[in-house]
């Protein structure tokens, strides 16, 4: 802002909807109701209508986006209580393999395997990672980054649960409409469920643990137990995505622990803006179609996600969603200076 032109400057004003607390609004007109409701309704309707429009390949991309979205939401949930996971594929892989083995060896249908895999994957993740929650954050990141890679190598080396060939010819979903809508609805339920949960007292405690765990401990709350609960929830959500994709592909293999499932959710959450869930959802809705359309690039895609990730962490730390939210809640006018 130099020189003679600098006689105008931007003035920002918050829109005046009086809010006593986060959840109580004083609404006086239809315009204000619309103002509050539209940002919530528009994405819901869009997502519910999209499966009707998108056919074939792009329909599948929508399902992918929802599943990656679930992983990103699960990441964001963990991050909101201070657990930074670099291995969402761990949750994904657990769910995928639980569903896959049940379906392969016992020929169970998705209606049975999905719930079992969701709960079982959540329990496995929580049990396996529960010792780490007592340690500093970097341990959690290291362990989650490493476990899926080690598990992948173990499956490859030992030939357990299908080895490097994987388990194929699994029971498919009966109806593509049902499966597509299941993906979309689960995604939406998780998105709004998490957003609600984190603003409830339960979520307040989780966020407090991230900010100052000692203060929370002095309030007689067992922070480790809370973190394990959070791990279970996040693990279950990730496992659902894994189990769903297993039946969707009718195949489960080592790729369930692949890096894609770890890096893309983090990239999505970082791009969209961590801590809001909507950001993670938005990020995955942007990144997944983008990466599908760049499928020709092959392995370079992952490098691309990494680029997006680094760029958004360094240059736009607040994320797209926070930016949009701020713009939505503010008037901007130019006022004359001096």
């Amino acid at each position: 802002m130099t020189g003679i032109d600098a006689t105008y400057r931007k003035k920002r004003l918050d829109r005046g909807i009086k809010v006593r607390s986060d959840s109580v609004f004083a609404i006086s007109s239809y315009r204000e109701i619309l103002y509050l409701v539209l940002p919530r309704v528009v994405p819901v309707i869009t997502l519910l209508v999209l499966p009707l429009i998108l056919k074939g390949y792009w329909g599948k991309v929508l399902v992918f986006a929802c599943m990656y979205g679930l992983l990103a939401l699960s990441w964001d949930f963990l991050a909101s209580c201070g657990l930074f996971s670099l291995g969402q594929s761990l949750f994904f892989g657990f769910g995928a393999y639980v569903a896959g083995t049940l379906s392969y060896y016992l020929h169970l249908t998705p209606a049975i395997t999905l719930p079992i895999a969701t709960l079982g994957g959540g329990l496995l993740s929580a049990a396996l990672l529960s010792p780490v929650v007592r340690l500093r954050g970097v341990y959690f990141a290291m362990v989650t980054l490493m476990l899926p890679m080690l598990l992948m190598k173990m499956i490859e080396a030992t030939g357990l649960v299908g080895g490097s060939h994987g388990l194929s010819a699994l029971v498919p979903f009966h109806n593509e409409w049902i499966s597509t809508y299941m993906a979309v609805v689960t995604f939406l339920v998780c998105l709004f469920g998490f957003r609600r949960l984190i603003n409830e007292d339960y979520g307040l405690v989780l966020k407090a643990i991230r900010d100052d765990d000692r203060a929370v401990m002095s309030a007689a709350i067992n922070i480790y137990w809370r973190k394990i609960q959070a791990l279970f929830i996040a693990g279950a959500v990730g496992s659902f995505a894994g189990a769903f994709m297993t039946h969707h592909y009718q195949f489960v293999g080592m790729s369930a622990f692949a890096l894609d499932y770890s890096i893309l959710p983090v990239a999505a959450a970082a791009l969209g803006g961590p801590g809001t869930f909507a950001g993670a959802a938005l990020g995955s809705m942007i990144l997944v179609p983008l990466s599908e359309s760049l499928r020709a690039l092959g392995g370079l895609r992952i490098a691309l996600y990494c680029g997006v990730l680094i760029g958004s962490v360094i240059l736009l730390p607040e994320g797209i969603f926070h930016y949009m939210e701020r713009k939505y809640h503010q008037f901007e006018t130019f006022v004359k200076v001096g």
Partner: peptide
């Protein structure tokens, strides 16, 4: 605490929700 340990980005009364949610 000698150096108060509070959650500054929460409204004051929300700070009490944390002990109030304890078993």
């Amino acid at each position: 605490f000698q150096m108060v340990r509070l959650f500054y980005n929460l409204p004051a009364y929300k700070n009490l929700i944390i002990p109030l949610s304890s078993p």
